[in-house]
């Protein structure tokens, strides 16, 4: 029995690959690693396609698969990232929101890389994917309280690295 509904799978991949890739990049900070993560996610999605279809929550399953593939990857010694205490300024404008400045982007990425994987995942899901605390808790299989505390710690870490001006008002309720 070789066939899943490959046409439907193909449609889903075509529609969602870019969104998955962006989330993966925010998680990994590297486009090649992001592509690897997306490939792994889509491969697992193919294998489980029929069961996932039944649950009618393709995005949720894809997110969850990517999330845990990402966290798994950070546990491997050759992919482990090392936290930094100070983000190198690099002589840029100092405004991380200035997307035209590659040095600012580098500074942001470096700061994100310094945030522990679980906290970074929470930040990306909460503030990029716009998921609720409860939705993130469901994806991570943890309590809402854990999501809030991880989010707060992640934001604290970014404040420490980038300065309080940019992040002073972000609070996780």
């Amino acid at each position: 029995m070789p066939a899943i509904d490959e046409a439907a799978y193909g449609e889903y991949v075509a529609a969602r690959r870019r969104a998955l890739l962006r989330t993966a990049y925010l998680l990994t900070g590297d486009w090649h690693a992001a592509e690897d993560l997306v490939q792994e996610t889509l491969t697992k999605l193919y294998v489980s396609w029929r069961r996932v279809l039944r649950r009618d929550d393709l995005d949720g399953y894809a997110r969850k698969t990517m999330l845990h593939a990402y966290i798994d990857s950070t546990r491997r010694p050759w992919r482990r990232e090392h936290a930094v205490d100070v983000v190198p300024d690099g002589g840029g404008s100092g405004d991380p929101a200035d997307g035209s400045d590659p040095r600012a982007r580098h500074r942001l990425l470096t700061a994100l890389a310094a945030v522990p994987a679980g906290q970074r995942a929470v930040l990306v899901l909460r503030f990029w994917e716009d998921l609720s605390v409860e939705q993130v808790a469901g994806l991570l299989g943890c309590s809402a309280g854990t999501v809030k505390s991880q989010s707060a710690r992640g934001l604290d870490k970014l404040r420490d690295l980038l300065g309080t001006n940019e992040f002073a008002l972000v609070e996780e309720g």
Binding site: Y9, L21, Y25
Partner: peptide
């Protein structure tokens, strides 16, 4: 800020056929 980080997003070159092949 997240959006700014993504501004150097490369074009997607992966093909769905490759995804299907990996899945199979």
């Amino acid at each position: 800020l997240f959006r700014d980080v993504l501004t150097d997003e490369p074009p997607i070159t992966a093909s769905i056929q490759e995804d299907l092949a990996r899945g199979r």
